[in-house]
Design a protein around this nucleic acid. Sequence first.
RNA 1: GGAGAGGUGGCUGAGCGGUUAAAAGCAGCAGACUGUAAAUCUGCCGGGCCUAGCGCCCUACGGAGGUUCGAACCCUCCCCUCUCCA
Length: 366
Amino acid sequence: MKFELLNRDGSARRGRITTAHGTIETPVFMPVGTLASVKALTTEQLASLGPEIVLNNTYHLMLRPGVELIEKLGGVHKFQSWDRAILTDSGGFQVFSLSSIRKVREDGVEFRSHIDGSLHFLSPERSVDMQQRMGVDIAMAFDECPPYGWSREQVEQSMEMTHRWARRSLAARTGRSALFGIVQGGTHRDLRKRSVEEIASLEFDGIAIGGVAVGETKEEMLDTMRFTAPLLPSDRPRYLMGVGTPEDLLDGVEAGIDMFDCVMPTRNARNGSLFTSAGKVAIKNAKYAADDRPLDPMCSCMTCRTVSRAYLRHLYVNDEIAASVYNTIHNLSFYLDLLLGIRQAIASNSFASFREAFLSRFRGSE
RNA sequence: GGAGAGGUGGCUGAGCGGUUAAAAGCAGCAGACUGUAAAUCUGCCGGGCCUAGCGCCCUACGGAGGUUCGAACCCUCCCCUCUCCA
């Protein structure tokens, strides 16, 4: 993996990551395909939207179908018939999201499978090994993502363990996949600073900000991100994990973030919450019942080119599978288009005005 | 013609003397969703009033009477459905 910085516009950066599965123009949004599938889309449909990288999840693939099987079938790219880049989360997020069925120890985390109750152990070594065996382009270090309510002491201890795990993750690297480290530290600036110093000092190919958007207020999230991002080394990709809304992405880019992932466009699509240039559209709302306009006249995605709001509402209200397909195609297109616009704006040194123009439309009432 | 069962809020369907403006589900209306245990979850859901309170007043469990301090729940008559036998 190689990262080149192409140009800057203020703190915003435009760059290019080169992998064995193509190049990735940054800033980039990575659609989330937890189970080697972006929910509601076939691989071909996903490919037609043009993302250069997607995210898969180690914990979920470990349970089903199993890393052994994926390896045996020729790797995770071949398995899902995807020839562009893949990044996997290490399972660190499941330490947070599945906290009720797991036990954290110094050596790793014991999970009770949410599927059948079977016992599974994830450690830095095992997680990195599995990610490499699946053949992903970018693997993530195994970390502990602490919940928002924790005391400063708990967050600090957790962070220090994540640091120890970071070194162990690195030691398990064979070179088959790039490996990113993850900064923790909750909402505490001094902890974030220490975490950056520690993680950045290690030989990671990129650095991620983790443990964000886990229940803290928007202000705390933005403060943490804005404080931490500039501390990250500029010669490596900076990845803000799990974020976020369109506004969050603009704020992230402005702070110098290069990579984002978030379930928001895909999950919200399935729940009928659609992003348009004029703001969010809750497609189930009665006011769209007879609305024959395209969802977003400014959008050129397949959904907006071919069907009306009235039809999208009809599909959603009737629980038609096509509702999820159309909505996911649109929301992902919206995110990918937003990032394309951001890259072009940075290239022409007009990010600030691009951001303002986008936000004034997006925040203006629908 | 005979025997039996039943009629409850937009629908299905609990309730069977007071704690019932009436369970639950559906439908309807709105909201949430941030490294996915999510095609999920939450709230509202007869009407009106205001000093907005676990407040007051209407209307409501096929219809009309009755018993009772009190009835969707008990009694009488009527109307209407459904099943079975002729």
